[in-house]
Design a protein around this nucleic acid. Sequence first.
DNA 1: AAATTAATTAAATATCTATTTAAATCTTGA
DNA 2: TCAAGATTTAAATAGATATTTAATTAATTT
Lengths: 225, 225
Amino acid sequence: MDRIMAKKRNGPGRPGGQTNLSESILDVAEQMFADNGFAGTAMRHVAERIGATPALINYYFSNKETLFRAVFLRRAEKITEDRMARLAALEAAGGYCVEDLVRAFLEPTAALLDTAQGRSFLRLHSRLHMEPEEIAFALRRQVYQASTRAYAEAFARLLPDLPPRRVYHRVSLMVGAYLYAFSDTNRLGELTEGIGDGPLPGGEGDRMLQDVVEFVAAGMRASPG
Amino acid sequence: MDRIMAKKRNGPGRPGGQTNLSESILDVAEQMFADNGFAGTAMRHVAERIGATPALINYYFSNKETLFRAVFLRRAEKITEDRMARLAALEAAGGYCVEDLVRAFLEPTAALLDTAQGRSFLRLHSRLHMEPEEIAFALRRQVYQASTRAYAEAFARLLPDLPPRRVYHRVSLMVGAYLYAFSDTNRLGELTEGIGDGPLPGGEGDRMLQDVVEFVAAGMRASPG
DNA sequence: AAATTAATTAAATATCTATTTAAATCTTGA
DNA sequence: TCAAGATTTAAATAGATATTTAATTAATTT
């Protein structure tokens, strides 16, 4: 759609004015990593889309893996911080229920549904969770482990009849459900084609979040069999 | 672990006896596509692991994409058939509940948890669902669309108060949850490290299935807000 | 036994890949 | 104004990739 272009001058040398290419690289790389994966994305193509040479990407981010980490961390760190802040707010406010906790966990990612760039990140994010490679593991743990654990412990306090092991299991079911729902790869439209409730009222993102919260909160509260 | 080796003779020519390399190629490719993705898997490496040359793979499967399809379809088609058969059995038996339906949908994939090769497929399967590429879409639709729709309609009959659009949405939440849980990429062990309920009793696969069914069935039945 | 078909390899083809190096141009600070 | 630093390119490096072709050996059919 809207490809970001540096004003091109043929030949080498620093161009006039300000370019802020570093951010453009992150944006384009985010889209391409989301659509084609890490291995499927060529540095050359990222460079082409911003109208520059591959060497420029290695100038800003020293190699492909570092670029990937930068793309991921740019948003992921905000998500974790946001989750922790929301959890702290709930604790401070006193009483909260399972549904409040689910909503607090999901809102920081649901917010990304509102922009195309945010949706790219969500696809990237889902892919990363499905990739067993070491690069993916390390990144996920580094960013999400602490906050996910904090939420799991909060859930455990709300669900004293459920053994801790099963609380964690349900947390991971929540993660799987929202990743899939938010990543838009499930092509809900394709599946429901011809059902025709028409488009959802009240903003796609909000409605989506509400549906997921409802489903997950019920799953969390399910009486252990 | 157990790499399949063709008995090597140096030089070209048809080897003596029977080799059944076609199946070996599918097995190795399944593992490698699961771990490294489509773009991240090199034909050359697949060939090396079976002790043959890349040309042999192109002899049996004419190119990389066809190989990928063959790997996927080998199991996916059985899953769909199994799902349809189980749904028909439920219908024939007369009354069934939400939990029965969830279990019927999930059992064909949960069965794959019992072998290493099956778990490879499950990882591949999850990856495919997160890949927005055209190859992934077409495959998923070809194999799963009809059976998923049939289940969605069965759910709709059991949940008359829930608008069809939302039934489909919940079905896709179910899919996301089980994909993630069964693909083992969530590394539950890592997250729960130090919790120590110890290993689950009664077979990892069965326990896993039971947990997911419980969670998803509750989510499905959640009263619409 | 001869001819045909099946299964395999070695080698070549034609790209595509990430990354580095050196040079070129602009900006900034002294 | 001049030197130092920042940002860019062109070109080279060193491989890796999927796929095709022709040759080779074994199995099967006639």
